[in-house]
């Protein structure tokens, strides 16, 4: 499994997440061990209920683990209080959600700089120019989300995630609501972020085509890691899914 030689940006050690108790007990994550290397684009796949979203939430400090440990860099999340977790999210992590990614009252640029302004940090203008150029919104930066297309909105969300130079970006089905053309725009943007800026990205998806943009695919089922695939293509991903799905 350890073909990755780079340092790890995030990892889970024997992480379990259990909902309910007794007969109603659901093991969303079952003592999972996984590591995400810096500068790599990883996709997490699996059928619904496999625990892929839970894994993402746990890694991102949005949901505490029931047992085990979760690290962002060298910070162990389960010992942190809400305030500290919030600051980790703000300063070290980036997020892209499936929908409702942008604050409707803020324009595109304000949305992009939101985590930085919440932290009272100044944006590095050179970096901002670079990201803005890459996001390809041109003159629409002053527009509010409802004046942008779905693809544009998601690209703004990715740009927001990149702008604070986080250690890792978590994306939860970022193209789930998009048509194929918009999807490829967003995914190419994410790919470019990894290639050009050395960004680490972990993305949950159920779309083999999306997963093909990643460097590595981790397959989950019943809260466990069932398989992994390096340098995937749509075909190899679909193939593996078929095998797993039985």
């Amino acid at each position: 499994m350890n073909t990755v030689t780079k340092t790890s940006a995030a990892r889970a050690v024997a992480a379990s997440k259990i909902y309910g108790s007794g007969d109603a007990e659901v093991r969303a994550l079952d003592s999972i061990n996984v590591e995400f290397a810096s500068g790599m684009f990883t996709a997490i796949m699996g059928p619904s209920g496999s625990g892929k979203s839970t894994l993402l939430h746990v890694l991102a400090g949005l949901d505490p683990v029931t047992s085990g440990e979760v690290f962002i860099g060298e910070i162990e999340l389960s010992t942190l209080k809400d305030k500290e977790l919030t600051l980790v999210r703000r300063d070290r992590l980036g997020f892209v959600f499936q929908s409702f990614n942008l604050i409707p009252t803020l324009n595109a640029l304000e949305n992009m700089t939101l985590p930085l302004s919440l932290g009272g940090r100044k944006v590095d203008p050179a970096w901002q120019d670079e990201v803005v150029k890459a996001v390809g919104l041109g003159d629409r930066l002053g527009h509010r989300p409802n004046e942008l297309s779905g693809g544009q909105q998601q690209r703004v969300a990715v740009a927001r995630a990149l702008l604070s130079k986080p250690e890792i970006v978590f994306a939860d089905e970022p193209t789930g609501n998009l048509d194929s053309r918009s999807s490829s725009e967003v995914l190419s943007f994410m790919r470019a972020a990894v290639d050009n800026f050395g960004q680490t990205i972990v993305m949950v998806t159920h779309d083999a085509g999306a997963a093909a943009y990643a460097d590595r695919v981790v397959f989950l089922a019943d809260g466990r890691i069932e398989a992994e695939l390096m340098n995937p293509t749509s075909a190899t991903v679909l193939d593996r899914m078929k095998q797993l799905g039985g």
């Binding site: 305030k83 600051l87 999210r89 300063d91 604050i103 409707p104 939101l114 932290g119």
Partner: peptide
């Protein structure tokens, strides 16, 4: 609710 959740997720503290 969604919006507040998003704000909190991207790093707004409770105090903010």
């Amino acid at each position: 609710t969604n919006e507040l959740g998003l704000l909190r997720a991207v790093g707004m503290t409770r105090r903010q």
